[in-house]
Write a protein that binds this DNA or RNA. Structure first.
Lengths: 117, 117
DNA sequence: TTGTTATATTCGAATATTCGCATATTGTTG
DNA sequence: CAACAATATGCGAATATTCGAATATAACAA
């Protein structure tokens, strides 16, 4: 009872527990409804990979997919998700210093931009 | 940059992405600071298991551990986490119907209570 | 029909989580 | 000190996630 409710919540958090999926949510929050093609172009994801992540989000009903002719348009299911991410940002700022040290730990990958080596 | 920030957020969501850890957070939110012994008694978790989950929460700085003599007292690091969980409840209610169908899907385990079949 | 574009799904390997069990650590009491 | 209580950690097996590669499906155009 109480228990499966927690499982429900955990499932949603799990769906949010990936950088690419967070990027997707943030993009949808900022841009509204967009086609998959634009989505994976913007986020520099492989098409298949983006589709897999979208499937995860769909399975938790976090996003809505709508077919429009050739393409599929995605949008956020509920503003609450945007709010949650805003809270995360707030949290991030509140604990900026140690957040930075956490980021330090993460700074093993993510070179991403490199100015002509 | 933007990317490792998302990784940071994802890490926090991942820490929340387990029913037992959600239960821990909710318990700390409701009870304030409590010793581990009380925590795993209340949640009916194995001692080692509870400790492992607490380690996950600690690693993301979501909880604070304070030693007091023999025992270790845990508390929530930031009210924001409670707020996030409240939002989740709000979300749950907003989409109650389909949430219920999601719960149906989960109802593979969690028999828990059964009225003599 | 055939071809083309857009998106989804399947598969398998690499990696990560989760749990119970055993053991280690820390503090207290006698 | 030894014995005990409270908590943490290490290990290994079971399970779950993640990714790229290949393939499937859907809508449309010629």
């Amino acid at each position: 009872m109480q228990n499966s409710l927690r499982q429900f919540k955990a499932g949603i958090f799990r769906a949010l527990a990936h950088p690419s999926r967070i990027a997707i949510i943030e993009l949808l929050r900022d841009e509204g409804e967009i086609p998959v093609s634009k989505l994976y172009a913007r986020l520099e994801l492989e098409q298949a990979n983006a589709s897999q992540h979208l499937a995860v989000l769909r399975s938790k009903h976090l996003v809505i997919a709508r077919r429009s002719g050739n393409q599929v348009l995605y949008s956020l299911r509920d503003r609450i998700l945007g709010t949650v991410l805003d809270l995360m940002r707030e949290y991030f700022h509140a604990h900026l210093e140690e957040s930075l040290s956490l980021l330090e730990d993460l700074r093993t990958d993510v070179p991403k931009k490199r100015k002509t080596p």
